[in-house]
Design a protein around this nucleic acid. Structure first.
Lengths: 337, 337
DNA sequence: ATGAAAGCGCTAACAC
DNA sequence: GTGTTAGCGCTTTCAT
């Protein structure tokens, strides 16, 4: 059943039916009632594809994240959903799998499906997809990963600041041999996360050891494997900083496996502060990321871009992260390594 | 830019452009190349709204879950995403918030947006939205919650079996005063989860106490509040079974708060086996739900429904849950309460 | 207040 | 192999 059918049944024109569907005041109460009654009776469902094609608005937003299985992104998603739902937007959710090609493909797909805007956590600092969005003039905002070459609407947390705080805390707690695990980057340049670590080390005149800088897949097994590798290679360290809490969970697992204790033998600091971090054994000391807020702000910024059509003024909002001290870091005697 | 514009630039008709866009063999290599070149040069993006309107297929699936913040659902979502992505479908994600009205609204919305099918975890056993899907003849599958009045395609785990296993294990470990926390149901009839508990109690001739049967919101604070209430009301119990692991985490928190110990003072069994359950302190004994599989099977079943148009043969697939014994249950001396 | 008609961007007969 | 044309189901201007 379509608008034409309803019109025929009601003995009016398509235009009139369309008007009642859109709550136009230009219809008498009588005809409105009659049409509404028929609509209900025949279970009529408007076709929003046709509508969207005409009015050039779909009321749907595309969201691209690297990994829907990571609690970090889920918390962000909750924030996004919260504001979008209130404004009657739907979310088209895409999982880029930390894969540039897949991200690009989704950007094409979402654009072709005519979403009103896109929120994306890019896989890399030079996302090809983002460039396309710019040339196609599609409203979008990025979060979490800043773009080095492009100036885009974005909600960010300074990753170098996060690792800097964590490293500094470990150093001040008497640690010198500190492992840091980043996520696989597939790039030659050092990530911001590593940069903050290096900065803290430098400020305390602690020499950098290459074998302490590791990359892993951002999940539990990734963390497990790194520690297993390090221990079997007899590389000695007393602290580890992970780029996400999931990785820290893997570290816990590996440390237990080798009959070591956290924090007595190994201290660990995570990053994210996922809901369950405080319930781990021992409770995880971590850098708290404002995940929900990240989502909330991203969605709000996007909505304002869509409404104002002010494609010119780029907004970059920086959010703060902070250290949450729990029980996975041990204070060591000075000069001990 | 649209297909007409490309046609003009290439000096051909819209039909020819459409043909190359759809990889039709009915185009000479020369014209194909010329058109492809122009498409690339002008950054042309096909409009899938128009396409979908015409061919009556959107390549998008709606997914409705009660709470995207619950690890249970996002594990399911991962399974769904896995199979849908492979078949080039997009996911429109909706959060019903355990709210019937919202669920119904989303079902209308998704249907109007002409998704090719819907996967839904209904909030209740008598979802009004599902009825609509049936009358509109839209392919769909439900999971997790069975519908009492309707026969629908679904992937299920027997909830009564889950609570039965958990209760039985607790009883056999010497517990008699066992609290069970269901989720708010807003219905008069007992849920399957409570039914399984009652059955196990009955089989062991343990009298039912109404104050042991509780309802909570399915999150950490929900679990916390229940235990707090019970303890301050001086109701004594030694075991608790929660309908989801998140609730169990809240129980842990409350038990600690009152300086009690798990499992020495209180034994707890969760339900779901979320990824972090084994890393809790102590590791949570829980009923493992095949979450990922639930998603995988749901998506596959939906896809087969969409392809075959066999709207007639309803498939119900039952998956098994199993008890994962970890460390949150203590064996008690017989006859102790 | 209502209707006629054009058009959103695409596909698919059908004709040549 | 390519073009013409008639829709898909809706909105919206312009008449009346």
């Amino acid at each position: 059943m379509n608008i034409k059918g309803i019109a025929k049944l009601a003995g009016v024109s398509k235009a009139t039916v369309s008007r009642v569907l859109n709550d136009s005041p230009l219809v008498t109460e009588d005809t409105r009632k009659k049409i509404l009654e028929i609509i209900k009776r025949v279970d009529y469902l408007p076709n929003y594809l046709a509508r969207s094609l005409k009015i050039k608005e779909t009321k749907t937003i595309g969201v691209i994240v690297p990994d829907i299985g990571n609690p970090f992104y889920f918390e962000v998603l909750r924030g996004i959903e919260k504001v979008l739902d209130k404004k009657d937007f739907n979310i088209m959710l895409c999982n880029s799998d930390y894969n540039d090609k897949k991200e690009l493909r989704y950007i094409y797909l979402l654009s072709s499906k005519k979403v009103d805007g896109i929120i994306v956590a890019p896989c890399s600092e030079e996302s090809k997809g983002i460039e396309n969005l710019l040339t196609w003039n599609i409203p979008f905002v990025t979060f979490d990963i800043p773009q080095t070459k492009l100036n885009t609407n974005s909600i960010l947390v300074d990753h170098s600041q996060c690792s800097y705080i964590a490293t500094k805390y470990l150093i001040e707690s008497g640690h010198k041999n500190i492992v840091i695990t980043d996520v696989f980057r597939h790039t030659k340049t050092k990530s911001k996360f590593i940069l903050g670590y290096l900065k803290a080390l430098g400020e305390h005149n602690i020499p950098v050891k290459q074998e302490f800088i590791q990359e892993a897949s951002p999940d539990i097994v990734g963390g497990y494997n790194i520690i297993k590798k390090l221990i079997t290679e007899k590389i000695s360290f007393t602290g580890v900083i992970t780029i996400c809490d999931l990785l820290a969970v893997g570290v816990y697992k590996a440390v237990n496996k080798f009959n070591l204790k956290i924090p007595d033998d190994i201290s660990v600091i995570g990053n994210d502060d996922i809901p369950l971090a405080k319930y781990l054994n021992p409770p995880l000391t971590t850098i708290h990321q404002p995940k929900y807020l990240l989502g909330l702000k991203s969605a709000k910024l996007l909505l304002s871009q869509i409404q104002n059509k002010n494609h010119n003024d780029i907004k970059v909002i920086k959010l703060d992260a902070r250290l949450i001290k729990r029980c996975s870091v041990k204070r060591r005697i000075k000069n001990a390594s």
